[in-house]
Amino acid sequence: MNPVNYLYLAALLFTIGAAGVLIRRNAIVIFMCVELMLNACNLAFVTFSRMHGNLDGQIIAFFTMVVAAAEVVVGLAIIVMIFRSRHSASVDDAGLLKL
C-alpha cells in the first residue's frame, strides 16, 4: 500500500482536530480534538519514518506520546477544577482574566 495514503489520513485527522478546536465550546471536546491533532502528527511521523527508512520519526512519536500523556494529566485536572467551580466546561465562559 502506498504510504502517501497514510499522509492523507494524517492530514485529514489533523484538519478534523483543528476544526474541532476552533469550533467546539466544550473544553473536554476541544481537549479531545487536540489529542486527535497530536495523534495525526504521530501518524505522519511514523509514515515518514517508513518512507525514509530510518527510526527518527518513530522515536519522535514516542516523545509526542509522553508529552501528550503529561498534557492530559495537567489539562484534565484544570478542566475538572473549572467545571467544579463554575458548573460548566464551556471555554467561552472562562473569560475572567480579561480586562
Partner: peptide
C-alpha cells in the same frame, strides 16, 4: 490592540492557527 483580547479562547486559537 486591546480589542484582540476578547476573552474567547477559540479566537485566540484562530490567531494561533
Amino acid at each position: 490592540m486591546r480589542k484582540l483580547q476578547n476573552g474567547f479562547a477559540r479566537s485566540y486559537a484562530v490567531s494561533m492557527f
